[in-house]
Simulated assay, not measured.
Amino acid sequence: MRADTPLRAIACFDAVMRTGSVSLAASQLFVTPGAVGQQIRKLEGWLGTALFVRSVRRLQPTAEALSYWEQVKPALRQLETANLAVRGLRDRQVRLSLPPAFASSWFAKRMPLFTELHPEVQLHLSASTDTVDFNDATCDLAVRHFGGYGSDVNAELLLPDEVRVYCSPAYRERLQLQSLECLPGTTLLYTTSHAHWSQWLSSVGMSPDSFSSSLKFDQSELSIDAARRDQGLVLTSPWLVEEDVQRGLLVPVFDAVLKTGKGYYLVQAKDVVLGEAAQLLRRWLCEVAQRVQQH
């Protein structure tokens, strides 16, 4: 590497690309937006090309910026990994990304078991359903709900998934939901991450056109909460309502179950060796998931 390589400027550039904003990048780096802007201009001068098209409200990366970022991300990730290893942090901390509903239900219920077993591990959690980009060095492991196929990651199935219908006991009683013939009078709670109502209804010989009432949510936890509050029927994964069912807040209705072809997978980068803490968490997650399925 050349002695004049502007590493600080590259770090600022990476932060702007990840956040899409100079102000957000500055907040992450604990500097002022002006300082970030100065570093970006320094990098542009060093590279001899514009990296952003600037307007009043937007900063649009150029084609050169996008290409350059794809090439420097792996190097930045390796640098971060090396830094953590030398500082000894990789042996103590692990960063895990989880879907919000899965994090607040299945994982939250079991997290105390891990922290009691490994009090020395610093666990950093983030909630997201976005595609994981391990190049940005924000997580070591991730759980994602998908089909398990990815060319740049290793994905290990934790929990196979299916969906079934749930509602509150009060809602079931009020509408006397004894059979499928009662369905057209209900309110369907749609959720983006488990958008399987059409398939489920088709499997029982019905169509969404038969229903005049519905509510739509972009997050599973919102639709599940609406079901708890007697607002309708939610079609979701048993893993997301496990504790609600145990506490009697939700009850399964009807016997029809739909296999989604997806599951909750534990994902990690292919080309990075996990630190000791991440390896502990990975083994624990796999063991717990296996035990859950055996009961």
Rank of each mutant, 00 (worst) to 15 (best):
Q71F: 10
A170M: 03
R247S: 13
E243V: 11
H124S: 12
A26E: 09
W239L: 05
P238W: 04
E162I: 11
Y190S: 06
E287Y: 04
V292H: 06
A108L: 12
D14L: 13
L201S: 06
T187K: 02
A195G: 10
T115Y: 01
F217E: 02
T187A: 06
E242L: 15
F146V: 02
V273D: 12
Y149I: 13
G48L: 02
L280W: 01
R2C: 14
T49W: 02
L201I: 15
Y149Q: 12
M17Y: 04
V22H: 00
E276R: 14
W69A: 13
G37W: 03
T62G: 04
S23F: 00
R164K: 15
S23I: 05
G147R: 12
R77M: 10
R54Q: 00
G261E: 14
E156M: 05
A278G: 15
A3R: 15
F30K: 13
R110D: 04
V94R: 12
W69T: 11
S212W: 08
L266I: 10
L222A: 11
S97W: 01
A137V: 07
L189T: 01
S202T: 13
F134I: 11
Y265I: 12
C12N: 07
G37N: 05
M17N: 00
Y68K: 07
D230G: 02
W106K: 04
D136R: 12
R41P: 14
D244S: 06
C139Y: 05
P169G: 12
V132E: 07
A142G: 08
G263D: 13
Q231W: 08
A289T: 05
L7E: 07
